[in-house]
Design a protein around this nucleic acid. Sequence first.
DNA 1: CAGAGCTCCTGAATGC
DNA 2: TGCATTCAGGAGCTCT
Length: 270
Amino acid sequence: MPELPEVETVRRGISPHIEGAIIEGLEVRNPNLRWQVPAKLAEKVIGHPVLKVTRRGKYIIWQLPEGCLIWHLGMSGVMRVLTKTTPIGKHDHVDVLFADKVLRFTDPRRFGCLLYVENEREHPLLKHLGPEPLSDEFNADYLAKKLKKTQRCIKVAIMDSHIVVGVGNIYASEALFIAQVSPQKLASKLTSEELERLVVAVKDTLDKAIQAGGTTLKDFMQSDGKPGYFRHELQVYGRDQKPCFICQMPIQKIVLGQRSTYFCPKCQKD
DNA sequence: CAGAGCTCCTGAATGC
DNA sequence: TGCATTCAGGAGCTCT
């Protein structure tokens, strides 16, 4: 399940191979992703170079001269740069062909997407997104302002991409544990100290994971292998009933906003 | 307007 | 061993 660090790792992994290359072909084997891949996408992109590969939240954006491709990996999406002779697998839905290689998009669950827009800033998916978590714009003052009047618990709020992008289910639990704030606490009730700790925890957690991802980049292009994702050192996620690494109290699993949530009832205060 | 719940999909895990 | 059932999850959409 790609979270922001994985998406950034994918971006870094593919960009050296893609940037500057001219798209020579597009093969959409299954357009039924989260949204239909636009029918006449090929004629819009073929013959044009990919100028730059950027990221906004968990969206990967390919900048072309007259528009851009917007990709999302959903939760099972994978992008790999392969040789053209690599056999096609069951869930290999899209190939972008270059002179000497192919960018292959694989996504068993098809929660991902591939869209095209002329002006990235105008696109409804990107237009109203909150700040990047690693930017200075994401700070305790900003969060305080945003959460001031909300009735939601902090874990649900921090996962809202209108508040801040890229904080997925796993890292939301992790960051709250590190910040020692209960995921159930009403978001508007966090003290400025707690907000500060949470902001720092989110940045640290994501940043560390991105650094870890960098170390796997060399393995990114295995022709038959897995993408260069990496294992996290998870403190609470997936550790239901296992002892807290700080106080040994069993980690609790609850559901918030239809998402499983893990926390230490002793270390994380309401 | 804010927020709760629904929804897409398939592989992995679990149950019998 | 094998089949049936359950669950997970990103995030936009619908409904209240």
